[in-house]
């Protein structure tokens, strides 16, 4: 019994360490003053500094890239949900010919790496004057997020009994109003979780953003471009900036993220 318990916690510790050690070192390095960082006798800094983060944001224009990143993410989420939500609903509630083929082809779009699409996209964008624009990156990210939104919302809606909606229709609502007043509130936690997940997908995407933009770079593209030619502690500071928002989001929505993927935890 005792041995089993010790073994259990040992494995838990190993797994946690596996994931957390790099994160801890990134955060440590990001907050270490330059002279401490290059001192081979010091692992832990004598004091913490926000100097690198400050410089990255305000000297190297990181704040501008952050705003662009947020803009890109919000636009792609808006488009993906405007199109994907009705599509996901239709996939669940209606029977129509070719439904399985459509479902499969939605999945297939995910089998093409975005980086493969990036070059032809660039050519098209130059023609449409979308190159190096926020909208251009947002559209590319929509291509990545939309299939995910369709499949996830369809699974969220299928978890909500159609009889709730039918009851509302019998008692005096139109189909659309029944959706708005009954199904949507019930789906909201799951939809919010998938929106946040979409945000993180866009937030973390770096290749397409790097290819499609030059001056209007999203944060990861900007970091790839500037921080990577800077001293190491800047790279770690950049890593921290990237990781923290994602970690905060996931921490607050973990319950819904788990249920969104259909996994149940006690």
């Amino acid at each position: 019994m005792m041995v089993k318990k010790i073994l259990f916690w040992f494995v838990v510790f190993l797994v946690a360490a596996w994931f957390l050690t790099p994160v801890v070192f990134i955060f440590l390095a990001a907050l270490t003053p330059a002279q401490d960082y290059y001192n081979p006798h010091k692992i832990f800094p004598s004091h913490f500094t926000l100097d690198h983060l400050y410089k990255l944001f305000f000297v190297l224009d990181g704040w501008k890239a952050t705003i662009i990143s947020i803009e890109v993410a919000l636009i792609s989420i808006a488009i993906s949900f405007a199109v994907g939500l009705p599509a996901g609903y239709a996939m669940t509630r209606y029977k129509f010919p070719g439904k399985n083929a459509i479902r499969l082809s939605i999945l297939l779009t995910r089998s093409i790496p975005l980086i493969v699409l990036a070059v032809p996209l660039m050519v098209i964008y130059m023609r449409f004057n979308l190159a190096d624009s926020v909208m251009g990156v947002a559209l590319a990210h929509t291509a990545m997020i939309l299939p995910f939104v369709v499949l996830i919302t369809s699974s969220i809606f299928s978890g909500i009994s159609v009889e709730y909606e039918e009851a509302a229709m019998v008692f005096g609502l139109t189909r659309f109003k029944a959706f708005i007043r009954i199904t949507l509130p019930l789906a909201l936690p799951g939809l919010a979780a998938s929106a946040i997940f979409s945000f993180i997908m866009s937030w973390n995407e770096v290749f397409v953003a790097s290819v499609l933009t030059l001056s209007n770079r999203t944060l990861p593209a900007h970091i790839l471009n500037t921080a990577m030619t800077s001293p190491d502690y800047f790279k770690f500071a950049a890593g921290m900036i990237m990781a923290v928002p994602a970690m905060i989001f996931i921490f607050f929505t973990k319950k819904y993220l788990v249920s969104m993927w259909g996994i149940s935890l006690k």
Partner: peptide, 17 residues
Amino acid sequence: PPKDRNISMVFQSYAVW
């Protein structure tokens, strides 16, 4: 449409919101 028929219904799953 159902809403204009002035009916009501009890569902097998109850469908209590």
